[in-house]
Simulated assay, not measured.
Amino acid sequence: MSRFSENIEANEDWTDYGSAGDIPVGPRLSSYHLHTAEWREAFLERLVAVGEPALLEATSRVYELLAEPKDYRSALIAKAAGVTGIGKIAILYTLQAFLDEWLQPTQPLPPPSSFEDVQSWHKAATRVWNSDSEREQWVVKKFAAVLDGKAISEFAHS
């Protein structure tokens, strides 16, 4: 039994979301509060770590915490994300759009053969990785704001 198993048993809000061990142990998405941008960002980052196995749980959590009228608010969130739907379907499509955008490949790594030495290639590859990291952080912030009812069009990615 791993040290994480003990934490899961002691705290039912923690889970490993699967038996393969490829998903990091951490809090269940249903335990996140979504009342601030920081909570929504942490929630989305955890959703990225877990992926599609937790999509329905994430959908239920967002919908559960919406103020009334929930169907109206969920439709506004979907519209802000550029998807359609009402109710839980709207939230599901919004979260799926988030995962799709987060996972979108950006620029490929440059081929090593196009550089004089490995250090030059490494610098170029590091610039690509840093650019990806910045884009991923931007996508999380954008969708955290969408869950708060702000339109995607309010964000300009530089």
Rank of each mutant, 00 (worst) to 15 (best):
S120F: 00
N7I: 03
A97F: 03
R40Y: 06
K150S: 08
V50Q: 03
W14Y: 13
N130A: 08
H122C: 11
E154G: 06
E12Q: 10
I77H: 00
V25S: 04
N11S: 11
S19G: 11
G21I: 07
L103Y: 13
A145W: 06
K142S: 03
L65T: 15
T126H: 08
L92Y: 14
K142R: 10
E116V: 12
V128I: 12
W14D: 05
E45W: 05
Q104P: 07
S19A: 08
S30Q: 07
A20D: 12
S60E: 14
S31P: 08
A75E: 10
S30T: 09
F43C: 00
L47H: 01
A124L: 05
D71N: 12
A75R: 07
W121Y: 13
L44V: 02
S133D: 12
R73T: 14
S120V: 01
F143V: 04
V48Y: 11
A124P: 14
A75L: 04
S30H: 07
E12F: 00
P112C: 02
E6K: 12
P105W: 04
K88N: 14
Q137C: 04
R28T: 07
L109I: 14
E57P: 05
S114F: 14
W39L: 08
T84H: 15
L47T: 07
Y93K: 12
P112W: 01
